[in-house]
Amino acid sequence: MRNVVPVLTVVVAIFALWYVAAIALNAPWAEDKAKRAGVTLTTSQLIADTWSQKKPKLPAPHQVAAEIWKTTGDMALKGRAFSKRSLIYHSWITFSATMLGFILGTGLGIALAIGIVYNRTMDMSVMPWVIASQTIPILAIAPMIIVVLNAIGISGLLPKAIISMYLSFFPVVVGMVKGLRSPGAMELDQMRTWNASGTQSFWRLRLPSSMPYLFTSLKIGMAASLVGAIVGELPTGAVAGLGARLLAGSYYGQTIQIWSALLTAAALAALLVGLIGIVQRYTLRRMGMVR
């Protein structure tokens, strides 16, 4: 709680900087317009103009907020929450791909981690590749995955989810391997003295003690999964989704649209990661791992 004031100060400072930057970046266009109209602008007029342009270089926060409200809350009130112009619709498209990819990636990651922990051959042959693959910019192949899957008749949600899966499964593998190996020799020996079978020591010792690691990786995986879904929407030619809104906005120079899509994506990321954080806190408290 003692961090609230400093955090608020920093956030306010960011907004102040944003407004100042909007003046600086949009001023040339405002002056250009005034010159052609043959009027000279006073400072206050200039500032007012830089904060209310239609296609500014940097839209002011209140313009973005107005655009977001116009495309979400306002449309929802009019009962058109899922029309193609509404950001709720586009967020939903991105969200569904993110979630599907995240679930697939987490499942695959946990399965692979169990294999790596219990099978020595797999540990020695797969693990170095899992680590090496993290150094490879895997997002670069996103357009190819989309096109290839399209060519064999798979389109829509699944290709994007596959990219998300690719991105979210690495953190889960690495975190889970660490977590499943976190019980010390003493604890494993204790299980053996109780004559516990392999399955029992997995369910009662290894899996529970891997939980803190799992949640940390899930947060990273969720953020990566959203990035994957957004990038996956780029090469489909701007049909639907937050990534498509970004691309369409950059085609037509609609900066306000770009920023509103960007901030919605940020809010979505914050929401999803925050949700995992809440589940984490509740689960770990029930398991007696945090006080």
């Binding site: 990035v227 957004i230 970004l246 770009i258 920023w259 960007l262 994506a265 940020a266 990321a269 914050a270």
Partner: peptide, 19 residues
């Protein structure tokens, strides 16, 4: 704020930067 920003899809800044 920094660790929050590190989790955001910052890659979306790309079209703005290109502009």
């Amino acid at each position: 704020v920094g660790s929050f920003a590190a989790a955001l899809p910052i890659i979306g800044m790309a079209p703005i930067m290109v502009m």
